[in-house]
């Protein structure tokens, strides 16, 4: 069983490494991730929102839906943890209080 898991892991790793052949090199300014949308954010975000920290500007304004449902996700996680684990007090302590 462990050998099978190791084999699966190694095959997955080999496939991923083969996939990285087509990836851009580390720190390439012309990589596909850096030329489409982010150029607009870097050039225009300060003019449009007056926020010098681009991460905050993109997080709060351009990707507002993302952040809003992010907040909902952690809210739901807190609700789930409390509702799964929270016990009521035992009876002896209820009598005391």
């Amino acid at each position: 069983m462990k050998a099978l898991a190791l084999l699966t892991t190694l095959i997955t790793g080999a496939i991923l490494l083969y996939g990285t052949m087509d990836f851009p090199a580390f720190g390439d300014p012309q990589s596909p991730a850096a030329i489409h949308l982010s150029a607009y954010f870097i050039e225009e975000a300060v003019h449009e929102t007056h926020v010098p920290n681009l991460v905050t500007a993109v997080l709060g304004d351009y990707r507002g839906y993302d952040t809003m449902f992010e907040t909902v996700v952690i809210y739901c996680a807190g609700l789930a943890v409390v509702s799964v684990l929270r016990k009521k007090r035992s009876k002896t302590q209820e009598n005391k209080s």
Binding site: P29, A33, A34, L37, S38, A39, F41, I42, E43, V46, H47, H50, P52, N53, L54, V55, V58, L59, R63, D66
Partner: peptide
């Protein structure tokens, strides 16, 4: 990706000088 506001408002910014903020977000 934290810019100088007044400098950017007047002179603009060179995209190649600033790290891509989108993956950070």
């Amino acid at each position: 990706p934290i810019l100088d506001k007044h400098h950017v408002m007047e002179h603009g910014v060179n995209v190649a000088e600033i790290v891509n903020p989108l993956p950070h977000v």
